[in-house]
Design a protein around this nucleic acid. Structure first.
Lengths: 207, 207
DNA sequence: GTCTATACATAGATAGAC
DNA sequence: GTCTATCTATGTATAGAC
């Protein structure tokens, strides 16, 4: 599913691709300068348009943020569901979800969207916030099921909800410090994060 | 040390207290609505002043944010250093730092400031950002020393820097979901977070 | 120290031509 | 679909009286 939040009726392929480009560029700018400080003029210029033309694609600025977020979270949900279908063992699911989440944070495009999810939710109106909340909840369900299974199996100990929050929170924080040219490669960071977050788990990089 | 970022020359006690009140109220508003969306008019009204009067206490809006952040982080540094002086064992230091950080996040006043630290750093000019970075680094040093000791003792395994980032990131995320009237009390949340973050550690609530 | 009044800049969004 | 031109609102910050 290509999440085009607030999906609209028929659109030409060219129009759709322009819209997609806008969403990706917006995500990058929001990450760089923050949503509130990014002006529609900057965004327009970044894609070679004048500010007025943006409003042919989006009703208002908030709708851009909403699209950025919905797009990003939806693609993680899709991949997460596929992974859950592929694997049945809690240990495999847990490690797989972990690696998926990390790669979506570290990868440029997905990372920009996740960054918006993490940092810009307060700029949404209550209605839009509820929409995103719904998607977030769908994603968290994957984690809930998996962590509950893992706790039931004795693979993890403690309150499942707190474990989920701590593990996801620890990962989400990577958007603040991870740099592709840092001391550790993306793979090394993922391995070490996995080790720090879920010490009891065997590790299978192929997941 | 009472961190009054960009400390100025002599100020009457009354003036100092007004300034402190402004910092605390600002922190609360920033948390509620975000820094960029909080107007100086709102802040002024919240303390019973007109917007123009704010600029008697702060040169500009950013200086308020800077004061909120510096104030918050400095008080955690102070407490952290005292704790490091009180305890010598890595296990005790680790658990103590953890509990201190959690309580500073969960406690209303400190939590507001930490929230700003986590969410509003992009609104600082590079100069101000460097100032806050310096304080953050001082705080992280406490964690670095402690985690290095713990790894050396075999209490923790893995890359110390990643462990630190994961543990702190997991805790910082609590500002997003913790509610005083939630399912778990502050104490229970802290215990469960400790368990999730540092499973190998014995727990001593008195620390 | 606080107020009133206001300058000044910049933002988001719209209208209508092409 | 994109542009130009512009409206309108709102923000930060200042000046000067009290």
């Amino acid at each position: 599913m290509t999440a085009t939040a607030g999906s609209r009726e028929a659109a030409t392929p060219a129009e759709e691709s322009r819209r997609t480009e806008l969403i990706l560029v917006a995500a990058r700018l929001f990450r760089l300068n923050g949503y509130e400080r990014t002006t529609v003029r900057e965004l327009a210029e970044a894609v070679g348009l004048r500010s007025g033309s943006l409003f042919h694609y989006f009703r208002n600025k908030e709708e851009i943020l909403l699209a950025v977020m919905a797009n990003g979270i939806q693609s993680v949900i899709d991949e997460g569901q596929a992974l859950m279908a592929r694997h049945e063992q809690p240990a495999e699911r847990l490690e797989g979800l972990f690696r998926l989440h990390m790669s979506s944070l570290i990868n440029g495009v997905g990372g920009d969207a996740m960054h918006a999810m993490i940092y810009e939710w307060r700029s949404l109106t209550p209605q839009a916030r509820a929409q995103i909340q719904q998607l977030s909840t769908a994603y968290e369900q994957l984690w809930n099921r998996t962590i509950n299974e893992a706790v039931a199996q004795g693979l993890l100990q403690g309150d499942p909800a707190i474990i989920r929050k701590h593990v996801l929170g620890g990962m989400n924080f990577t958007v603040r410090w991870y740099r592709p040219d840092g001391r550790l490669s993306a793979e090394q960071v993922t391995e070490q994060m996995l080790r720090a977050a879920l010490p009891g788990l065997a590790r299978h990089p192929e997941l």
